[in-house]
């Protein structure tokens, strides 16, 4: 659904996005992770047709997005800094969206009022930050877009509202095969939501994985041998991390679980456990090579 090919974008003398390619399939939720200034917002604004990329191509549903009304009618972008017309009420904004998006559903708009307890005729500017975001989601869901691009969308929402919005998103994806790309600097926030994850660091995608694949491909193991660690033990393993605690060797390895287990059994370990791994840990180990203070990315 979303196809990004070798896209670059420069601002003055800063290269905000360099050579990014990614693909998001229809009906999937793609989490774009990265620290502040990684280039997430820039990339999303290019996807939304706001910025024009300096190089590369962006296709949504097979069509270039920039200045393409057809594509943009099916696409909704929710920026991190929200904008509403000065002095506008939700009712007025709804009228505006109704005129602009053919897919607007009046029925859905009415139904969603239950989820978002906001006054229709109150000026949006007078509302709190969290309420403004609710209003934005209310309008966005009522448009029933095919693609939703969300930039740090959960900021400012309380825990209950967060869950509600997530549920709505998942529901839309399940029911209508909506495609979502969602950015965050907080992995935990979107961990339960996304089926794909990409990490953007200094304008480049340093990691792109399917969520399931991530969890099955990396293993944390704990082994101990009777006369110390055999010298050839590590050579046959793709270890991204190792740590020796007394006679116990703790390491994180990549590879198919069965193969790894078979390999280790050859050495007849005294202790051998495969430990559970959090998503966060996976990233920490995956990204060790990038030389970045990983904690900052994942909070």
């Amino acid at each position: 659904m979303i196809d990004v090919r070798s896209v670059r974008k420069e601002f003055a003398d800063i290269e905000a996005v360099k050579e990014v390619s990614l693909h998001v399939a229809r009906g999937s939720i793609y989490g774009l992770l990265g620290s502040n200034g990684a280039g997430k917002t820039t990339l999303l604004k290019m996807l939304a047709g706001i910025y024009k990329q300096d190089r590369g191509d962006i296709f949504i549903g097979g069509e270039p997005v920039f200045e393409n009304t057809n594509v943009k009618q099916k696409l909704l972008f929710l920026p991190d800094a929200l904008y509403f017309f000065p002095q506008a009420t939700i009712r007025q904004m709804a009228q505006f969206y109704r005129d602009l998006y053919p897919s607007w559903s009046e029925e859905r708009f009415t139904r969603l009022q239950e989820a978002f307890p906001l006054a229709l005729d109150k000026k949006i500017h007078r509302m709190s930050k969290g309420m403004q975001r609710q209003a934005a989601f209310w309008l966005a869901f009522s448009v029933k877009p095919e693609v939703m691009i969300l930039d740090e969308p959960l900021d400012g929402l309380d825990a209950v509202m967060r869950q509600k919005v997530k549920n709505l998103l998942v529901q839309e994806v399940a029911e209508r095969q909506m495609t979502v790309i969602i950015s965050s600097h907080n992995l935990r926030e979107v961990e339960d939501l996304c089926d794909h994850i990409g990490i953007l660091h200094q304008g480049e995608i340093v990691l792109e994985k399917e969520m399931d694949e991530l969890k099955t491909d990396v293993h944390k193991i704990q082994v101990a041998f009777r006369g110390g660690i055999p010298s050839s033990f590590l050579t046959g393993l793709d270890a991204v991390y190792k740590e020796q605690r007394g006679s116990v060797l703790l390491c994180i390895v990549r590879g198919q679980k069965e193969k790894v287990e078979a390999y280790i059994h050859q050495f007849e370990p005294v202790i051998f456990d495969v430990l559970p791994l959090t998503l966060e840990e996976i990233f920490v180990y995956e990204m060790g090579g990038v030389g970045y203070a990983i904690e900052n990315i994942l909070v």
């Binding site: 939304a48 047709g49 706001i50 200045e67 943009k72 009618q73 800094a81 904008y83």
Partner: peptide
């Protein structure tokens, strides 16, 4: 202004 131009240009309207 950044917010308004981003908003207006994200709408399905040509320049």
């Amino acid at each position: 202004t950044k917010r308004s131009v981003d908003y207006m240009h994200s709408l399905p309207l040509r320049r």
